[in-house]
């Protein structure tokens, strides 16, 4: 018997055959949902090998190492109740965690609330850049929800839709998109001008496809304004939730797109790194979850012309939904995405 886990983090024991069967079921689920190619038998064997080894920690073969980018870096240690400022936090990522890039973020982590404190953020970024050598991104979420009542001026689509006011909800979303673009471009411009090496639009699409549209258009505007700006676009879920239903970008309806489709639009908008997401089902096993994660992310990496860095952490990318991911699952997911998923980074 081999020790593995459920998606909720609890440890379970399975036979090698059961693990392989669950990986196959996960692969099938991914191909069925996202309408993508299956993994080959060899690739499934490779995954089964990674998930049946007795080692606590599994890594990649030399030469298969990936670039590691971190979102929300300067906030995560604080969440673990570590008393630390943002700059020492970034230094830890650089000097202790072996990060290839780090991200400065504000605890509110949305572009809208950063706007009035932008000067403070610029100063902090300058200081961070003077005391680190790794590329420092500035990141936050588009978080379109902040633009509707009670946090914003637009009527709340979540209240309009159940009343059947679909047109009114769609109009509200369209207005919210314009405001979000304005805030994202403003904050990203200021931070880039303050010296940030890149901008991260994180958890894109969390409020549905209007959120994704705002990010794509903000990316386009920023790339036109600053051709050398580096933009990372991280997603919030494996498919884009359809909250509006009729929003298009480049002639493509954004609702319901899976990672291999999302990345093409991110590319078109000018993003430099795409952070794909595949969600965890907490009731299924980790072998099942990794089967579908690798299948979806591999399909994404195959069609991408920009680097794909999968989100790997609590509840995404084959990692259980626990606040501090267990090293057995985290290292296996990383190895699987590197060696079978053929990604560029995590």
């Amino acid at each position: 018997m081999v020790q593995t886990r459920l998606g909720d983090g609890s440890t379970i024991e399975m036979t090698e055959e059961e693990i392989r069967a669950d990986i196959e079921r996960g692969v099938e689920d991914a191909t069925d949902r996202a309408n993508i190619d299956s993994l080959s038998e060899d690739e499934i064997d490779r995954l089964a090998d990674i998930y049946t080894r007795p080692n606590k920690f599994v890594s990649v073969e030399t030469g298969n190492e990936l670039v590691l980018t971190f979102d929300e870096g300067s906030v995560k240690l604080k969440r673990l109740a570590v008393s630390i400022g943002r700059i020492p936090d970034l230094q830890l990522y650089e000097r202790a965690f072996c990060s290839d890039t780090a991200e400065m973020a504000h605890i509110d982590y949305s572009y809208k609330p950063i706007k009035p404190i932008i000067a403070e953020e610029q100063i902090e970024m300058e200081q961070a850049l003077l005391t680190t050598v790794l590329p420092v991104f500035y990141g936050a979420m588009p978080n379109l929800s902040l633009y509707s009542q009670p946090d914003g001026s637009f009527p709340n689509p979540a209240e309009l839709l159940p009343k059947g006011k679909i047109k009114e909800a769609q109009e509200a979303y369209e207005g919210m998109v314009e405001h979000a673009i304005s805030d994202m471009v403003f904050v990203a411009s200021k931070m880039y001008e303050a010296g940030a090496d890149g901008i991260n639009f994180d958890t894109t699409g969390s409020a549905g496809e209007p959120d994704f549209l705002a990010t794509l258009r903000a990316t386009e505007i920023l790339k036109e304004k600053y051709p050398d700006i580096s933009i990372e676009m991280g997603m919030s879920g494996e498919f884009v939730l359809g909250m509006h239903g009729e929003i298009e970008y480049d002639g493509v309806n954004l609702a319901g797109l899976y990672p291999h489709e999302q990345v093409k639009l991110a590319e078109k908008a000018g993003a430099d790194i795409f952070g794909g997401v595949v969600n965890i089902n907490s009731s299924e096993t980790i072998p099942w979850n990794i089967g579908r994660t690798v299948t979806m992310m591999k399909a994404c990496a195959e069609v991408a012309n920009i680097p794909v860095h999968a989100n790997v952490g609590m509840g995404v990318g084959g990692v259980p939904i626990v606040e501090t991911p267990p090293v057995d699952s985290l290292s296996r997911a990383s190895a699987a995405l590197a060696e079978v998923g053929k990604l560029d980074g995590l």
Partner: peptide, 11 residues
């Protein structure tokens, strides 16, 4: 599965 969206769902 992301094949139908919220406005349609309401309908």
């Amino acid at each position: 599965r992301g094949e139908l969206f919220l406005p349609q769902l309401m309908g």
